[in-house]
Design a protein around this nucleic acid. Structure first.
Lengths: 204, 204, 204, 204
DNA sequence: CATGAATGAGACTTCATTCAT
DNA sequence: TATGAATGAAGTCTCATTCAT
């Protein structure tokens, strides 16, 4: 019963994954508007009609790529909130968890397009982003209450700066091109966010 | 007779400004790919051909919007470098100078598209961005030498985080929507960048 | 199973032929610049996009019409060279072979445009025309060596005059409109080319 | 009275000639459809509006170039008819008269477009061409009657071949590029037309 | 008269989406 | 179910022609 759903269903999922993989690669490389459905179909090796069997619209295909990353980020935020330790540890956990792997690449890379492309998913996206930010704000407020975070700074400032830390461009330059070890990259990111660029006296 | 260059030339510039204004509005609102030349022409109240009299390609129209902002930012960087005071004061000057007004809106808003849209201007853009970053790096390195900036952090990290401070989304939310006074906004931005979110002991 | 390439492929070719037929008709009638892709699509009864499925550019559609005629002429030249008989017989064979049917209509009709329209095919066309002329020159030189053709006349003169014989305008006037039997038309053409307009003493 | 029409009128004519000269150059070089009115105006150094002051339509400008050449050819035909000597001498006179200078270049070069471009002048062109051909036919028939031209060949054949002799391409190749003396070129052309390519026994 | 900015019809081309096989 | 040919709306850009200055 467990494995009987498969056979055809498995093939279907495999194929869908092939599509998603190739689409992600191309979308990241050339941007939403410069990748055609033809191009994706050809690259995957299926007919264009097949794409539409899996994703009714181009928008849906792209969103199928963005959604799990957004949700993954959200669940990381939830995990961070539950993480044992103070607010600093929680944010470090989140940093560690999402800075590796695919993290926010897509969202940020296409951030400007987010609103223009995913019109049908506008509310859904807004919903998830709200939860993400409110989760981060919770942690930040906790930190403020505990006196470890600057009480003067609005959490919106902090969270926005925090999200900017995930900017994939820098990651690529440092980790991929210059081969900076990931843990060093994460450490620098943490220092930057927690202490700023001033010469510090302490930190951990 | 001194300003006899005008008459027709003035009209030409006025109209060009009308086009640029409307185009900026729409481009910011809907994004490059969702604004058609027809739409801009109609909005400005001129014929399609008139647009092409001023800008040979859609790309050129968009770049005519981006270029001055980029150059303005660059010259602010140059001014900042020459600003009397330490590296902190220089960066604060830059922050103050460009956080107001048009600053980096367009660049950042369309950052993801920059490479895909402005193909013909790729090298020119790269050139200017290089100068901008190298100017900022100079200031940052000066700060490192003087012992005020964290010597452990690579300047690329710092500059990237610094540029992210210009993210227009937060500006809009805070200053425009929530009516936060600009000087407060700038102060928070500076704190965030220089000291991070940790409760500080000092700062100025 | 032998002709199993068909089914869809056949339909594709049929439709392509429909397009080519209608395009040839219109192009001959109105000229390249006065026939729009819209017009062709409408005339054939397909959508505009379908045209571009078969021919990526308007230029390609037009060249698809010209190319086979050019190649057919070239292969006739090759056949003529191998034709048993003297140089006169060879040229007569070529005359006979290409004066009927579609022959050089398109090429000559659009000769002036050839260079301006088929920019992408410039070298290819030049290549084929070179072969055509060099083939004809071979025959002409053979005739000169054998003492049947005027040794004083440059072959370029002769070949140019020969090619001019294929001028479709006269063919239409004489054979189509005035119903001159084709063999008479060919005979007159041969006389003109071989003996000129002077009252002859002989000829075959 | 004779010279009082001038002053402004002369300037007007000079300017018109400048326009015509430049237009002829460009039209010959790039073809009717690939030369824009902008391009001509810029090349001549006048405003586009000025072009339209002299020629109401692009078609008119082009026809102003073609017409005098056609008329010149026609009057040469008339002169040839009146030329003292037999039909051969008359045609040789015509050959000599029009093969030099600008002769039929334009007409032939653009022959294919003639019908498509000069729609408004269709009947006028037809009229002149009719006169040209009927003049040539007169000479040819005279030759036939006198027994010097082949009575078997229809005059339409002969005249068509005769006109083809003016093909500018060959002229350019031989006289301009290969520096063949003009009188040799004319002589070859005459031989070709009168005697064909066969080794002749006589001819003057 | 001369100018050249403005016009707008219309050309070519792309591409997301559909649907008969 | 998978295919890919067909569709046609929509986009960018050109250019002959007009007309206010």
């Amino acid at each position: 019963m467990t494995s009987k759903i498969s056979l055809k269903e498995k093939q279907r999922r495999d194929r869908e994954q092939l599509i998603l993989d190739y689409a992600e690669k191309m979308l990241l490389e050339k941007g939403y508007h410069d990748v055609s459905m033809d191009e994706i179909a050809a690259g995957v090796g299926v007919a264009k009609g097949t794409l539409y069997l899996h994703f009714p619209k181009k928008e849906d295909l792209a969103y199928a790529l963005v959604k799990p990353k957004m949700l993954s980020f959200l669940s990381s935020v939830e995990e961070a909130k539950a993480f044992s330790g103070g607010p600093i540890e929680k944010l470090e956990y989140l940093l560690q968890r999402e800075l590796t792997g695919a993290f926010f690449q897509f969202l940020l890379k296409s951030s400007s397009d987010m609103t223009t492309i995913f019109k049908s998913y506008e509310t859904e996206i807004h919903e998830v982003l709200s939860q993400i930010f409110s989760g981060i704000h919770e942690i930040l407020n906790e930190g403020k209450r505990e006196g470890v975070f600057d009480p003067e700074l609005p959490v919106e400032f902090m969270s926005s700066a925090f999200i900017n830390m995930f900017e994939p461009h820098l990651y690529k330059e440092m980790v991929v091109v210059r081969r900076m070890p990931l843990e060093v990259y994460i450490r620098h990111t943490a220092i930057l966010f927690f202490q700023g660029i001033m010469k510090s006296k302490e930190m951990k």
